[in-house]
Design a protein around this nucleic acid. Structure first.
Lengths: 412, 412
DNA sequence: GCATTAAGTCCAGACAATGGATTAAAGTCG
DNA sequence: CGACTTTAATCCATTGTCTGGACTTAATGC
């Protein structure tokens, strides 16, 4: 039933209107109180009171008086503040750890990456290294007047209860939130743990290829392939937050066996390892991660293999071309299913697939044109991610910001 | 952004609390004001006021004083009223028109069906016949003190804007809402037009196999195959309400061509026509629909063909067995994809698939056990619909009720 | 310099909630 | 059988938030 579970009282009303005013400031900044009153439908009195609260929370601040119109008393424009409130986004990937700190405007104020192979590494060790990275960035943030109020972390896996399964990291039922929380500095909001595809989708939504698209499906292509669906600016998480496992959609029931127990899963056609194997690009020797160790080339192993593949494609290497075509066909078939089930306007290729987009998009679009839209009268457009490998960290930070925006008083 | 679009005022607060109290009465009826105050978190004063409003709307009424506990003044129990407020559910199917009237408790007070082949029939004629059925039931309802406040209609197609595409009815861009609205009696709430799989899912949720299941995927198997996903009691509609087209998920890229332009779609394996063709059950001569004509056997053609198929299966007819096994395998493959993308707890087979459930569930479960849950640690259970061919009409009526419950003042 | 226009603030009033006091209706116990 | 206890329901003063009209402030234009 679509009925609220909690009683609505005067305080609830105020909270909701506060969030409404803040959202409107974010959308139209810089904007005067008078304009806010018009566009929200609240009275000038109420808007002024809410803006005062948001100023006290340091989420908004007065902007330069912009001469905008004609006569009359000029308004005092309000904009999102560039601090001190800040959000921390984290990401664990097979080949690197990443972090970024963003201010309320969404601008990235700090970013850092630690390269190294996290596959098969002890989860506690990986998360300790991530915690160290988080503390370092939080301290750097404090130096430039940023106060991190909350953190979200993107993982290439599925959360079940408070445990995380991430087969491509070798994680099985890892209590990631508990392990990481101990390694993070104190914060006013709780830690959010979510899938990299889900958070990547949110990152693209706010800062990348998803802006303006009403709804879209974001593909996170690495060793595994995840999908995050955004409908009307909201993430669809499925029943238990484990939706979007596109990698194990069946592309060909007579296809090769997959580690999941099935056969012909998309991952066996379009996953990073499968593509590299089919293309004959040799496996780089895994460089074990060293905590705080001197600079490995960020994401070296994976990135250089992709570069090698792109190079071969440029040289019209037959095996490379066939491998990518095979991946494109597989993605097309899987996406026909996904589009029929989820009905997005746009499909965004992220992760490694973004770098291969020029080669993948034609076969995908061909498949979708045949089978993925005849009924609904339109075929979704396919495009590459705009944020590249940053989608997930950016999305993680955006998630924290979204929480602040939904309930600004929580940081006070 | 998860920010509200409209300002929250005192009236909004009252509306939400009214819906909260009504939902709580529906969940716990019969229940006293004191209990409602406890479980909603509102004060007794507020609950009493809200209950008075609901009584004035004739949505709830006093029940028999139930001796329930110990000492003290006994409370006056409140229950959902059995009238006069009522909702009308309608359905257009390839083989019949159906309607039912339910009271606020969800009990079916009236039902009726008109058999006949609606495939290829002029949409205006079909909808006029449906309108006549609706008026007849509304009038019968008035005789027993029921006042129909709103209607929803289930169609085997996809709505695009205010037009409906229903390939299996031969409908192309039919303005169904506009055509039907003219044929319906006046009502206080608007007409809802939705997909039969979506509404079937809601029907099962409230009255059938979905009760208690946190989230589940309902399959509507007729000529086409649709799917409706319910998560936490809410229907997932996709971006434009066109999600759930399971019938055109690709089961085998080298499979037979499909009318949608693709190849190897599930519909070619597990759709009613495909199964019958594979099983060698002859096509019954289509009996054209006659408006108000004397009783055809309800849903005759389709039902008798299914009976014939079941009969052959009982006699261990090899061709029939192979046809159903093929359908089961196809469903299994498609459902691996759907389960990975949508993450339901339960899969409910509806429509024709419900009648074939004994033969379909084993191969489906086998497929899901292999590929549809290893990652998330559990495999969804598969079961047959409890409402059979009534899911969609019941769900349609339930949708209207849900609107009343979400905003009770709308019927005042 | 004064009229005009628009932004922002002030304040009484409305509305729906809260919470404590009161009344009502049963059982329990002497 | 009547006083006491217990629980339900109502009454009423208070509180918090929004509304809407009146007022003040700050600019432009003649």
């Amino acid at each position: 039933m679509p009925a609220p579970e909690l009683p609505t009282r005067a305080g609830t009303m105020r909270e909701r209107n506060l969030a409404l005013v803040l959202a409107e400031i974010a959308r139209r900044q810089p904007v005067t109180r008078a304009r806010l009153a018009e566009s929200t439908g609240l009275t000038k009195t109420t808007v002024a009171a809410q803006v005062a609260v948001l100023e006290r929370l340091r989420l908004v601040e007065g902007a330069q008086p912009v001469r905008e119109g004609s006569r009359g008393r000029p308004g005092a424009p309000i904009s999102l503040a560039r601090g001190p409130v800040a959000a921390l986004g984290l990401e664990v990937n097979g080949h690197y750890l990443a972090a970024c700190v963003v201010d309320p405007t969404g601008a990235v104020r700090l970013r850092d990456t630690v390269a190294g192979d996290n596959r098969g590494r002890d989860p506690g060790e990986t998360l300790a290294a991530l915690g160290a990275l988080a503390r370092r960035l939080t301290a750097l943030g404090a130096d430039i007047g940023l106060d991190v109020v909350g953190t979200a972390v993107a993982l290439p896996g599925v959360r079940i209860g408070d445990r995380v399964n991430a087969p491509n990291l070798g994680w099985d039922a890892v209590p990631a939130a508990a392990l990481l929380a101990g390694a993070l500095p104190d914060q006013r909001l709780g830690l959010v743990v979510d899938n990299e595809a889900n958070l990547g989708a949110l990152g693209e939504l706010r800062y990348g290829a998803g802006q303006g698209a009403g709804s879209y499906l974001y593909l996170s292509g690495e060793t595994g392939i995840g999908a995050g669906l955004v409908v009307d600016g909201d993430l669809f998480r499925g029943a238990h937050g484990a939706a979007g496992e596109l990698g194990h959609v069946v592309v060909d029931p007579d296809g090769p066996a997959c580690g999941c127990g099935g056969a012909g899963c998309l991952e066996q056609y379009a996953g990073l390892d499968a593509v590299m194997r089919a293309a004959g690009v040799p496996t780089a020797a895994g460089t074990p991660a060293r905590v705080g160790g001197p600079g490995d080339d960020p994401a070296a192993t994976s990135a250089s293999r992709v570069a090698e593949l792109l190079d071969r494609l440029g040289r019209e290497d037959r095996q490379a071309r066939l491998a990518v075509e095979r991946a494109g066909r597989g993605l097309g078939i899987a996406l026909i299913g996904a589009v029929n089930l989820l009905d997005p306007d746009t499909v965004v290729l992220g992760g490694v697939h973004a770098r291969l987009a020029d080669h993948l998009i034609p076969p995908i679009e061909a498949a979708l044109a045949r089978g993925g839209g005849r009924l609904r009268g339109r075929v979704p457009t396919v495009r590459a991610s705009a944020l590249g490998s940053e989608s997930a960290v950016r999305g993680a930070a955006a998630t924290v910001l979204a929480r602040v925006f939904a309930d600004p008083l929580a940081i006070g």
